[in-house]
């Protein structure tokens, strides 16, 4: 008797779980790749309703599919980047992460490294610099998901909750991820973030243009990552980090289109792949010009 009473007392915090945090229909939801169109649209409407209840904003959650003949790739000019972190902050706003306290920037998919000229060793980099940039004798290297072709993160996932889409973007099904964080350990680019808490953002900060696989507000306890702003790029637009860059250091495009900007870079510039020795074949290139 005492034992049961003790157990009940111990479990008491569970009472404060909000309705909808864990629901039966969530538990029974199938993997993204197994969902029919009707099931998907039902789920999207439910997510919209849930998000409206939780965050007070009517969002529009889509499931835009990858297009044929498109392979996204990104290039970033190390000669141009000045390390102003506009991209890292735009990323946060675009992708609906917490905006509660100043250290929420930690969840941004982009980490901007400050390096000493004359070295390209990221282990000697600094992420905490501030003030006016670019600083003397320094250069800057923003790092985000490299959308590796041989991605160690998708290999690691025990439940196939993360995979590469046909357009080359590595995505996470936030409704399937069990939160084991093995993918985070596997990533050589520190590109994945975990929802240590339920995201908290005021209604005016919510970006209502959302996608199931990218920037919809994530549930607590799952891993998320850069998707090259899939909700924008699959509709033909540029990623948010590119549009905000004041130096034009960022180049984005379709690898399969021979006339694309990205192919121009690959053909004409000195291209550098970060941690090429990890053998992951990234689709994110650094270049000099």
């Amino acid at each position: 008797m005492a034992g049961i009473a003790g157990l009940v007392t111990a479990l008491k915090p569970l009472l404060s779980l909000e309705r909808g945090d864990i629901s039966l229909s969530d538990l029974l939801q199938k993997h993204y790749q197994e969902l029919s169109a009707e099931e998907m649209s039902r789920i999207l409407r439910k997510l919209e309703k849930q998000s409206n209840e939780d965050y007070g904003v009517a969002s529009n959650i889509n499931d835009t599919k990858a297009r044929e003949g498109v392979q996204f790739a990104y290039a970033l000019s190390l000669s141009k980047c000045v390390g102003c972190r506009r991209c890292a902050h735009a990323c946060l706003a675009e992708n609906n992460q917490s905006r509660e306290s100043e250290d929420d920037i930690e969840m941004s998919y982009i980490r901007v490294l400050e390096l000493d000229k004359g070295s390209i060793n990221v282990e000697e980099s600094d992420q905490y610099y501030d003030g006016e940039v670019p600083k003397k004798d320094k250069y800057y290297m923003p790092v985000q998901c490299h959308q590796c072709q041989d991605s160690p993160c998708t290999k690691a996932c025990p439940v196939e909750a993360t995979w590469m889409e046909p357009d080359g973007v590595v995505v996470v099904d936030y409704n399937w991820c069990i939160g084991c964080r093995y993918c985070m350990a596997a990533c050589p680019y520190d590109a994945r973030r975990f929802n240590w808490k339920k995201p908290s953002l005021p209604p005016e900060s919510v970006n209502p243009n959302q996608n199931y696989l990218s920037n919809r507000i994530r549930p607590q306890g799952v891993v998320e990552k850069c998707t090259f702003c899939l909700h924008r790029t699959r509709e033909g637009k540029y990623p948010a980090c590119l549009e905000v860059c004041p130096t034009g250091a960022r180049v984005f495009g379709n690898l399969l289109d021979p006339d694309s900007e990205i192919n121009y870079i690959l053909k004409n510039k000195r291209v550098y792949i970060l941690k090429e020795d990890a053998g992951t074949t990234p689709k994110f290139y650094y270049f000099f010009d």
Binding site: R85, D103, I105, Y128, Y129, E132, P246
Partner: peptide, 16 residues
């Protein structure tokens, strides 16, 4: 030549 830019706030050392 571009003028210097004010960088946006840096990440902080994680509180936890």
């Amino acid at each position: 030549k571009f003028p210097m830019l004010q960088s946006l706030p840096a990440p902080t050392y994680p509180k936890r």
